[in-house]
Simulated assay, not measured.
Amino acid sequence: MRKQSRNGEQAVRDDRFPPMLFGVYIGVLFLMSGIHMGLLVLFDKMQYGEMVQIIVPILYWAVVAIGLTLYTRWKIRSTYEEPMHQLAEATERVANGDFSVYIPPHHRADKLDYLDVMILDFNKMVEELGSIETLKTDFVSNVSHEMKTPIAIIKNYAELLQMGNIDEEKRLEYAQSIEQAASRLSNLISNILKLNKLENQRMDLDMEVYDVCAQLCDSILQYEELWDEKEMDLEVDLEDRAYIYGDRSLLELVWNNLISNAIKFTDQGGRISICQESEEDYVRISVRDTGCGMDAESIHHIFDKFYQGDTSHAKEGNGLGLALAKRVIELMDGDIQVISRKGEGSTFTVTLPAAGKEETNEPH
């Protein structure tokens, strides 16, 4: 008997003893019965004694019974016991922290039964556990590294402040350095908590229809001092209004991150372009810069937690901003893509569902 697997893509047998096996048993018993009748006729024709005619059939059926019992025992062992022992041993290894375990299924992909499916699910589970363990190790390592630097700065400058022979200018400089390091540490912890809540969907979304163009203008103005300081050209191409349905405060994090990254990674006198366009069902926002750009490896990992293409950590940051932005956009049923070439700059494009026409008529 066969039934559909859980993903509905292929049929899976729901038994490991096929009906044909019982046909084999019946056929063997019929054959043995025929041989038994033949022996009785032979003994009668050869005029053997009664004892022979009684003892020989008993021994004959004893051999048949032993043979069938041994065959049944072998079949049960190979069909059930060995796979279950193998699975039990693998489970014990996983429980002891070995995530390199792999159990091969016992049948081909077109002849899978429920035990094969259970083994495949077990292999997938172990692979996922291994990935989680790797992520956890990387997470702890990266958090430790990112926290270590500002803590060391705070400690060093606090020791310098305790010295009695420093002037007021130096004292102010040290205090500002401590404040910047504390702010960096606070932002790191805040982003970790936000990302954790978003990934575990424990943050309540405050969804509303609002004008994203107005929000983009506000975000751009926040960084006016920075792009003036670096003498950058800023090109802004926005519609008068574009309404989306999303969480205003969370999407503000996205725009602030993309704009601040564009400024941070663009050299003095560079150019930043922020464009927005609307389609029937979507609103698309692009942030383009003429900065250092990224290679293929960096693009592949740019949305990973704590990943920083600048391995020297010369640029301020903790590698959580883009991971946080991607998760926010996913929760809004949107998408974020990046196009970049080393030395030629980067373009981040965010696509979000547009609000329905009936919703945009409501005052906000």
Rank of each mutant, 00 (worst) to 15 (best):
L251W: 02
L39Q: 15
L129K: 06
E224L: 06
M84T: 01
F139G: 00
A262I: 11
K148M: 05
I154V: 01
E127H: 10
F22R: 12
G345T: 09
F348E: 00
M207Q: 08
S78A: 06
G334A: 05
E50T: 14
K155C: 01
P353L: 06
E229W: 14
N261M: 07
A158K: 10
L205D: 04
N142P: 03
G309S: 15
S183P: 01
M232W: 07
S249T: 13
N142V: 05
V328G: 02
R93I: 06
S5W: 02
L250M: 14
T149E: 07
N142W: 04
M46G: 02
G269C: 13
W74L: 09
L115C: 01
A109F: 12
S5H: 04
F30D: 09
Q4C: 06
N196M: 09
D113C: 01
D116G: 00
N256K: 12
I220N: 04
I119A: 06
V283P: 11
Y245F: 12
Y223L: 10
E239V: 11
I54P: 11
L87W: 09
V63A: 15
I54K: 15
E81H: 09
K197R: 12
I299R: 03
D281H: 15
E344H: 13
V63Y: 13
A152C: 02
L42I: 14
G317D: 03
K3I: 10
I35T: 11
I178M: 03
E128N: 10
F17I: 15
A182C: 04
I178T: 00
G291Q: 11
